[in-house]
Design a protein around this nucleic acid. Structure first.
Lengths: 264, 264
DNA sequence: AATTTTGTTTGACAATTTAAAACACGTTTC
DNA sequence: GAAACGTGTTTTAAATTGTCAAACAAAATT
């Protein structure tokens, strides 16, 4: 993450680092892993992950298949993320509003927060039927290519923006993705003035999104809500007349709830 | 988990153990923690968590407030649990069905799996309006007091049941909670015969629940779906005539999807 | 049957972790 | 305003671990 000229890390609880790395190696594509696979990924001898895997297993985060000897994650790993979610009260408060918005518009409605250059989904009300965009809690998407990301970036101090967007970001996904830093900054300024963001096909062709910020009493953006759907549902007129006003209304309500959190 | 007579742990990647412990110390009640608080909880000198906290911060899982010096979890911890969720395809497949059931019945609908003596919620469609039961993904509830827990317990091999329910479990929550092991076993047998479970006020007064198992082609129960609502919504007639048949229908559909997962 | 791959254990050395002590800095107490 | 206290941080040195290489057993391949 840190590009790093490596003064030398002050500390590095190595087994902690590696243990967490192991947990993160598991994915949809690789739901199970063997000792050797893990050792190769970490680029260490087999003994190292062997001991860590033993520990993770003892703690209950991993399960080893007796026959194949391969490792799986267990539901216990959810405890880790769950602790975080429960420190946020917002998703709980927002959920009924997300569902109301979804029902009134037919689009999927989400609640997300910003983490670096990515948005993280922390609440969701999926549209009925074959929804074009399938978002699960915990999903990360590049902030610069989604409306809820932009609207959160728009309210960041310039300094953080520079940090966050420095270097390899602004990756294009379609020909409509904004990739020029100066253009992008200008768009953010507009968004900040308007108080909302709209994206059209910047991450996927034909997918539109409308987003508004949730702002606490200190004026910080702490989250965003957005609607996403194909352009047949979220066409321009519908956005203007229906979707956008509703999103703004809800974002204001939710902003009202916030503010007792950060005590400066 | 293993009751253990503690020969002496073969290995213990201590900093991994402690690091994960630290992440788990955060909760809704204690969203931020100080160094001293953490040191006390772990019962070690301040140096230990200091180094681990530094590491966790470097990895991005924690954030330290500059002024107060207190630590918070960051959204990055969701990555850990998210890896697990993405290894399960079921929640994704099930979501539209959960919502359909919710809409057709007015009750909240959930998908859960069994972890030891607890159920873990991995999918949810919350009822509109003021829902009596608020379930977020990752929530754990005692399996013996909820319908979705019972229906999963009912299909466990006897041996595992003994393990799981040994000792301090079968904790009562209301006067209707089953606490006698023999009674409970008998109820499980009935549930297994019926193919569904119904609970009435065993965890909370006035809250009813109907659950059915999701079974893969090897005959193992891998999850359960359930409906929960107050007894005014889920009254007996409605359960019989509407809720239960619908739940059973969906559980069969979802069972049909499963089975290519476990290759023995 | 021979070879390779994988999981597991052991040994010896290097590296980290640990508690205690010491320091810096605010806060509180007297 | 000085002394005592609580925290976060650094240093120290002894105890514990983590590490690689080597070796073995058991599968899986050839």
């Amino acid at each position: 993450m840190l590009m790093a000229k490596e003064e030398k890390e002050r500390y590095s609880a190595n087994s902690l680092v590696r243990g967490l790395e192991i947990l993160k190696l598991f994915s949809e594509e690789r739901p199970t892993l063997s000792l050797v696979e893990i050792a190769k990924e970490l680029d260490v001898s087999r003994t190292v992950p062997f001991r860590l895997l033993y520990t993770l297993q003892t703690l209950g985060y991993l399960y080893q298949d007796e026959h194949t000897k391969r490792y799986n994650l267990t539901p216990k790993v959810l405890e880790l993320g769950f602790a975080y979610l429960s420190t946020l009260k917002l998703p709980e408060i927002a959920q009924p509003y997300l569902e109301k918005l979804r029902d009134e518009t037919g689009a999927s409605c989400h609640l997300s927060i910003l983490d670096g250059h990515e948005v993280v989904y922390v609440g969701s009300a999926a549209a009925r039927g074959v929804s074009a965009v399938n978002v699960n809690i915990g999903l990360r998407l590049p902030a610069h290519a989604v409306a809820n990301g932009k609207v959160q970036l728009a309210y960041q101090p310039q300094e953080r923006l520079n940090q966050v967007l420095y270097g390899s970001n602004l990756t294009p996904f379609t020909e409509r993705t904004k990739t020029d830093f100066v253009d992008f900054q200008q768009e953010l300024a507009t968004i900040r003035e308007q108080g909302y963001a709209i994206t059209k096909g910047e991450l996927h062709h034909g997918i539109q999104s409308v987003a508004a910020p949730i702002i606490n009493r200190s004026g910080q953006v702490i989250a965003a809500i957005n609607l996403v759907a194909t352009d047949t549902i979220l066409h321009n007129e519908f956005i203007e007349k229906a979707a956008l006003p509703k999103v703004l209304e809800v974002s204001e309500i939710l902003s009202g709830f916030m503010g007792n959190h950060v005590k400066n």
